[in-house]
Design a protein around this nucleic acid. Sequence first.
RNA 1: GGGCGGUUGGCGCAAUGGUUAGCGCGUUCGCUUGACGUGCGAAAGGUUAUAGGUUCGAAUCCUAUACCGCCCACCA
Length: 706
Amino acid sequence: MPELPKVYDPKKVEDKIYHLWQKSGFFNPDKLPKTKNRKQKIKNYCIVIPPPNITGSLHMGHALNATIQDILIRWRRLQGYKTLWLPGTDHASIATQNAVEKELKKEDKTRFDLGKEKFLERVWQWKIKYGSLILEQLKKLGCSLDWSRTRFTLDNGYAKAVETAFLHYYKKGWVYKGKRVVNWCLRCQTSLSDLEIEYKGEGGKLWYIRYPLKTKSLRLQAKSYIVVATTRPETMLGDTAVAVNSNDKRYKKLVGKEIILPLTNRQIPIIADKAVDLKFGTGAVKVTPAHDRVDYQIGRRHNLKILQVIDETGKIINVENYQGLKALEARERIVEDLASLGLIEKIEDYDHQVPVCYRCGTVIELIPSEQWFLRMDKLAKMAIKAAKLGQVRFFPKRWEKVYFDWLKNVEDWCISRQLWWGHKIPIKGENDVLDTWFSSALWPFATLGWPEKAKSLKLKAKNDLNRFYPADVLSTDRGIINLWVARMIFSGMEFMKRPPFKDVYIHATVLTKEGKRMSKSLGTGVDPINLIKKYGADATRFGIVWQVMGGQDIRFVEDNIVMGRKFCNKIWNASRFVLMSKPAQIHTDLDFLGSQGGFAQLRKITVADRRILKALEKTMELVDNDLESFRFGPASRKLYNFFWHDFCDIYIEKTKSQEDKKNTQRILLYVLLTSLKILHPFVPFITEEIYQKLPIKDKKKCLMVG
RNA sequence: GGGCGGUUGGCGCAAUGGUUAGCGCGUUCGCUUGACGUGCGAAAGGUUAUAGGUUCGAAUCCUAUACCGCCCACCA
């Protein structure tokens, strides 16, 4: 046996070991060696990876999530389950299109300069580059994904799944086309769903505007008016009513009367509606059904005209004097004009929330637009039911509230987007594409071959679809519980009649040490690849998972990765110690603790021997329990304490003075081997490397399938 | 506006109502004993955010308050 170096060097080990794993084929459940457990049909275990967007490289959040999933998969694989962890990437329609547009901007070009065809070529080049970069990163981290099943949400088979799903809804009448007031991103030039907008606090103003009442006498008209408050005076051009609360005594007499809308001189009614808050502003609100969500609802209740005055470029239309002005320019002009007419009562400072695009941060305009929608009432009910019945369980449980709250009040989903990169709407004459989340909603079964394999599913044929659907665990970030998780659940219910996974594990969000969100644009991001280069993949995995406690956010500190590296070095040197004594071979499956023989047969077993064996057994049990309920941090601490303290500090020190060398060597080797097995899901590279050097009689090709 | 999470040694975090509140990093002191100085042994460092309450007993349960963070929301 060659002498091992004193310090563990991950660089010399990781690529070699990953290659060994890939060559073994054991990432693929169909190629796993037979064991007692794997012969049983029920012992399948599946995780579908949340496909990373191909917008760039992975950050620590991804690294944490990938580590968590790999721990679960390796743990179950070692237990004898037929494990599938299915890899892939997401075309991320709007996000990727924006990323490529940003790149073009550096060349002073827009997508329109290139034209659709050339632009899409460019996106495909981007996809090839970043798609493979992401998969490489996962490999560096040690992820045991079945690469033979790699999918992309825009590959040919996937397009078939999207088309099938869309047409299924279409035939049911759940997908429909209609003109609605939708969120419109002025930069991306597309509609967005309600979940795709964010709110940004803005120090704005509240203008109080006098709307003159229509009276018979002109003299009176100058004196009598109703005052409305607004943050967006320019939208008054599209007002088609003024609304007050029906219980508001101040305005009771005015309901049913008309006002003359300043600047346009249109006559519009004063109406009573429940949506109006008596306490805010003046209690009277201008109603612009074309450019405000609430106003649209009010308009529908009162049959008001929808008068669009802002177009999809953010400019004023349909009003002569302001035609072609940008909304903000129009605002200035209108306020000036109103002031010169003496119609501005007062102006107050007012902080409010402005909707912005979740991908590019541009202000959202609400405009009436012809779009495709998916009816949500029935689907939402199914999704709620699945969680209520416990078919889907959230960990930690509190996150199901976020899910229920959204589904209970959800409105129809606007699924069409005016983008170039994405799935085409499968209806003749439609050029628009689908919301990227429509396709990701099908991920857990589309990746397994749906709809092609659906027929054989009915025939109970053995294929991926019925073997690995539903998946056991979905591990993801809390930010996409509704955007993605909820939509996967109702899609699964609709197309597969079962929810797509049993457990939803919401992992911690990785923050900076200061408690700020990690973000590339803020320069607060930490690249896992740099950590892997510096400390090794195992150290990075162990260090980050060490911090996973009870669903709390993680403030990332590099100290923990340093700890991980030290721990790996400890594992390395304890193994060196055991190997240096040149122990005789032992049998892998020898049941030392059981009634079958093993240590029960050993005559001279010392107190220290008994203690370490007991501690090992206990640790195995506790770690299993922790992993059953996703307690990764506590599990890693138990492993650490057992190995470092019980095994190294106490037992190994003790063995140096134990007389029965042969017995001691056997026990040392047994405890080391078993420790490697329970450590392997957390630190796969180093444990595999050591395993390959251990004197085991019936050694498996890999510890991975130990 | 509503909801959720957090606040424990210098820093990052544990502790499932019950001994002296633990761990990692850092700090100080001592160890060149043949696995590891990325190590071993020891030590210092905490009125558990604040104020009340429940209890034989509270970091833990309850009620407020403060600060930090996140999510949702149609007060124009």
